[in-house]
Design a protein around this nucleic acid. Sequence first.
DNA 1: TATGAATGAGTCTTCATTCAT
DNA 2: CATGAATGAAGACTCATTCAT
Lengths: 188, 188, 188, 188
Amino acid sequence: MPAQPARADARRNRARILDAAAEVFNARGTEASTQDVARAAGVGIGTVFRHFPTKGDLLRAIVVRDVEELTAQIEALVTDGDPATAFFAFFTDMVARASSMRTIVRLLGESGADLQADKPLRLWRSTIEQLLAKARDAGAVRRDVGAEEVLALLLSTCQAAVSAGWDADLQQRTLGIIFDGLRIRPSP
Amino acid sequence: MPAQPARADARRNRARILDAAAEVFNARGTEASTQDVARAAGVGIGTVFRHFPTKGDLLRAIVVRDVEELTAQIEALVTDGDPATAFFAFFTDMVARASSMRTIVRLLGESGADLQADKPLRLWRSTIEQLLAKARDAGAVRRDVGAEEVLALLLSTCQAAVSAGWDADLQQRTLGIIFDGLRIRPSP
Amino acid sequence: MPAQPARADARRNRARILDAAAEVFNARGTEASTQDVARAAGVGIGTVFRHFPTKGDLLRAIVVRDVEELTAQIEALVTDGDPATAFFAFFTDMVARASSMRTIVRLLGESGADLQADKPLRLWRSTIEQLLAKARDAGAVRRDVGAEEVLALLLSTCQAAVSAGWDADLQQRTLGIIFDGLRIRPSP
Amino acid sequence: MPAQPARADARRNRARILDAAAEVFNARGTEASTQDVARAAGVGIGTVFRHFPTKGDLLRAIVVRDVEELTAQIEALVTDGDPATAFFAFFTDMVARASSMRTIVRLLGESGADLQADKPLRLWRSTIEQLLAKARDAGAVRRDVGAEEVLALLLSTCQAAVSAGWDADLQQRTLGIIFDGLRIRPSP
DNA sequence: TATGAATGAGTCTTCATTCAT
DNA sequence: CATGAATGAAGACTCATTCAT
């Protein structure tokens, strides 16, 4: 079962299942049952397993889809955005949207999901690195800050925003601190 | 079943179960089975449920115990520590130890565990606030930084350190950024 | 869906499915999935069910085909073979080939497949009876041995050869005993 | 869960489950569901899995129990029986009872159940070998007949008796032939 | 009180069969 | 006619929780 089935109805169902799964897992965690996903998608459970032979496959498909979408958006920022602010805008936006992407945030946060391994993840990561490089070049971010710790902080805040339910205000205050830490300090 | 059963053997069992549960849940996540906890504690499963009528109760008891222990340590810092550094030392230490306190970190991180509600948690929180206040007074932390965002960042980093397996180096680099953000910047 | 569909392509498909099914069920037992058969035949699963409305029908069709082939071979022996040896040669050969006819052996061995009922089976049986009669007339087999017990022993050894994986040597030794029991003993 | 649980109720249940399983698998084949076994035993399905963590374990337990019982009976024959007839009596009896031991017959017949491996099976086999040796020494069975082919014929006939439903008459006739093949022929 | 046996709802997954494309 | 997507009834197995010993 390829990601893009040939038949229209199959393609439609695949999408419906993915949507439903994203929603269900977002609302009740990845431990929600496949049965519930099927119900939410309005299909039989067999259909879910036909498209995603394993629950893990379903989860991974959600991650891939979301990561690809995210990557596209970041790429746009890399090309179009103001180097001095794009990185911070992206970081802020990502945290703000984290709660609608619980699944991906949770799986990304787990050491198992090696950012190195899967292609979409590698791409996502490298796109962020570009954004970061531009910010560094523009003098908006300290030169001694590496991509690894930035990603760690990004995932860390996304995860917490999701699991602890940070409101917009709290998001702003925590990110404010981190951003200050990332910026070049005016030398005295 | 009160926290301190009357009979000595019961009290002993309660402690053993708590120890075993902390260990098991730490090693295999909170999804480890109650049966496994019983086995690790060397008691029957009935005994576990007699002391903790629900798996949730057991989990919460671990949190309470760990939080109380933590609180005591923080209190010591409040009284004895150097106001200018104690706060940062505590933060660093907490993250470093997070991976041996998976259960508490995970449950604290979840919105369900309202930091307001339970007494031990309220106490823990207020002790940290004292530490923070001292750091502020000592000029080590900006005045406009509130306890809420500091706690959020603390839990956020603990959570990520645990789930993503931050090594010592990465811990240092991420916390370095956050600490820089917390410090008073030398006015130009 | 008659055994000989009108259209050429349908007839071709029927044959391909039968071949594939024989192979698959032989290799993995009758519990292999119909889907696997379809894949091996290179047709859609719907096509399999169009030709054989039920998995049971498919199985039975294999039996019929194989039995008819066998019958033809036995008939040749009846006409051409040396009456004194043809029966034993047939018996030996049948056991030797049993492992490439798992499906038929298994189904024939089951009481469900009443040897009386289906025409091809009745024919097969009666052909064997002729072979046996000739052997009896030639003095190679005792007169008091009936067809029923010979068939029983034949199926019994085929079944065991398949399920227990008798090697050539073991086949020879077991059949040697049975053949000795079937032969007329030299009166002392 | 040992074969002999400590508590009386557990021991009772284990036995009930084993009995029920033997009956159910005997009647409907080893593919009958564990649920059905539980129902027949009058216990919850969890209880079945507590005693036999896997369906395979349950099946194996039945085999072990039946094989041990059989072995004891054969041992009695070895000590007490008339060497000249005991072996044939045993063979006849075993086939006659085969239909009440479908499970064991089926599993024994499958190459997977290596007669070499499990202790009870090895014991069973070696006991039969003793019986055979005595028959040979008593001049009732040909010296050039090995244990391997005798076992093969035994399992073969048991299997067929079960699966094809041989009646008493047919059993007698088939075994008659095999026994004749095993006996020493009067030299002319 | 401690024990561990019993329970059964719930989980993932497979597969024969039907039906829209 | 052929295709393969959809279906849902099982099946094996797990686990929190209850209860007899």
